[in-house]
Design a protein around this nucleic acid. Structure first.
Length: 461
RNA sequence: UCCCCAGUAGCUCAGUCGGUAGAGCGGGUGGCUGUUAACCACCAUGUCCGUGGUUCGAGUCCGCGCUGGGGAGCCA
């Protein structure tokens, strides 16, 4: 007998009777005089395989002494379980102890706080919750690529190291090989012309600008990669390193953009409902009792759409007080967004056509001269989950807008060139991957949906 | 960065009016059992975050610092 059978395959076998090898980590051991039970997990699914060992196996004493966390290989026969609680169990004929775990193993067979588990991020994937989180994360990641692949979108890997420092999308991490203790100086300032790239560089805060260039060659593209923000944000929704999905479509306007965002989000909801059911039920039971119902609503509903101007009117007419003022021209706060999606609409809603003063320079100016073709998708419990826009494709207007907000066109010559030759209407959006995972699992802290999260003062592991 | 809350056994927490510290889980030992994060009995657990102060006496009150969490801002 060769190979290794995964716990998931064993538990879902069509019938009992097969001999198999199963390898994994011990979750609990229950020792008896005549028989010992081991709950074995290999990460392939939420459930454990019950291994039954009798005194007849060679190293029965060692097996009885196993602790939570040990790695073992079990050879045995899959049999119908005589007791309730599981359909099958593995009647062991041989148990090899591969890696011991003594009583100092930090994961106990009890509930731990998420705060504590963050301090042992190297071990928490062996817990039920984090097993489920990272199975869902992996499955969603693959679903993202499948969604775009099925629709003919080109996957583009935009650069991680960049010299764009004028996107205004947040503070950048500096990338340098200069000696920090004594950098070369020019007129009292650090001389980046002596640096590795001959100029100041940092980690990307967005792949959008490069993505646009590829959309103007391949029509429909997307990026899915890491993004870095050096903001000192201490909240459950922000990390210094996170993953972002940014599709971009040529010959598309804001409505086409919103249509894609809606199709995309509904596809991903349907995906976890169909493909991650066991893990989702775990979250629904332990984390967020309304989770599955909420995802089902989004998977089936069509999303509402509301003009920014109407949103402001609705907020001003709201029978409740907000902490922050509501007035045409001001940005919507989290409390406003949640009121709109939870109370006014009761489901996902696009807010479109924002005042140009509160949005980025690359968004397309509308004919009213005071709004831009921007959209935010708001969902209950989270607020903004997708932000996108139609881009300003008109050369003169783009330059005009850059001058207004004080961006030096020289640093973005390559971007402006795309409007010089063969420019066309195009649109795209950005979705924070971790926020999607939070939305679809009910996990409430971004640090608990990233394997080894990076936040201010935290880069361990 | 601002505001609020918390820090006590390996983990989760209790600790009253200021009087030298407890429970559950985990661990150890034994018992029992086709068991289900088993059950029963016994045993051991401590820089009460650090620091300075008030006090006869501080886990408890006060100042400062550190760490963690929540809210806000920034945003995805």
């Amino acid at each position: 007998m060769q190979g290794r059978t995964r716990v998931k395959e064993a538990l879902t076998a069509l019938s009992a009777g097969a001999d198999m090898n199963v390898k994994g980590w011990v979750r609990t051991v229950r020792v008896g005089k005549e028989v010992t039970f081991i709950a074995l997990n290999d990460g392939s699914c939420m459930g454990n395989l019950q291994v039954v060992a009798g005194p007849d196996i060679a190293n029965y004493e060692d097996v009885c002494g196993l602790g939570t966390g040990a790695a073992v290989a079990v050879r045995g026969k899959l049999v119908e379980s005589p007791a309730s609680g599981q359909k099958y169990e593995l009647q062991a004929s041989e148990i090899e102890v591969i890696g011991l775990a003594d009583e100092t193993y930090p994961l106990q067979k009890k509930r731990h706080s998420f705060e504590y588990l963050r301090t042992i991020a190297h071990l928490r994937p062996r817990s039920n919750t984090f097993g489920a989180v990272f199975r869902v994360r992996s499955s969603l990641s693959q679903a993202v690529h499948r969604f775009f692949g099925e629709r003919g979108f080109l996957c583009v890997h935009t650069p991680i190291i960049t010299a764009n420092d004028c996107e205004g999308a947040g503070e950048m991490f500096r990338v340098t090989t200069l000696n920090m203790a004594g950098p070369p100086l020019l007129d009292g300032e650090v001389d980046y012309s002596a640096d590795f790239f001959g100029q100041a560089t940092g980690l990307t805060v967005s792949g959008q600008l490069e993505g646009e260039l590829f959309a103007l060659a391949f029509s429909d593209i997307y990026t899915f990669g890491p993004t870095f923000r050096a903001e000192n944000s201490n909240t459950p929704r922000h990390a210094a390193e996170f993953w972002m999905i940014e599709p971009e479509m040529a010959f598309a306007d804001l409505m086409a953009d919103a249509a894609l965002a809606e199709e995309f989000l509904r596809y991903l909801c349907r995906h976890v409902l169909d493909q991650c059911r066991e893990d989702l039920e775990f979250f629904n039971q332990h984390m967020d009792p309304g989770l599955i119902a909420r995802i089902e609503v989004v998977a089936d509903a069509s999303f509402a759409m509301m003009e920014y101007g109407e949103a402001v009117e609705r907020l001003q007419a709201a029978p409740r007080k907000f902490e922050f003022p509501v007035e045409w021209g001001l940005d919507l706060q989290t409390e406003h967004e949640r009121y709109l999606t939870e109370e006014v609409v009761g489901g996902p809603v696009f807010i479109v056509n924002y005042p140009k003063e509160i949005k980025a320079f690359y968004m397309r100016q509308n004919d009213d001269n005071r709004t831009v073709a921007a959209m935010d998708l708001l969902v209950p419990k989270v607020g903004e989950i997708i932000g996108g826009s139609q881009r300003e494709e008109r050369f003169d207007l783009l330059l005009e807008r850059m001058a207004e907000v004080g961006i030096d066109p020289q640093g973005l010559r390559w971007y402006i060139d795309s409007r010089r030759w063969g420019s066309c209407p195009h649109a795209g959006f950005g979705l924070g991957f971790e926020r999607l995972i939070m939305y679809l699992t009910g996990m409430e802290n971004i640090r608990d949906v990233i394997p080894f999260p990076r936040t201010p003062r935290h880069a361990e592991f």
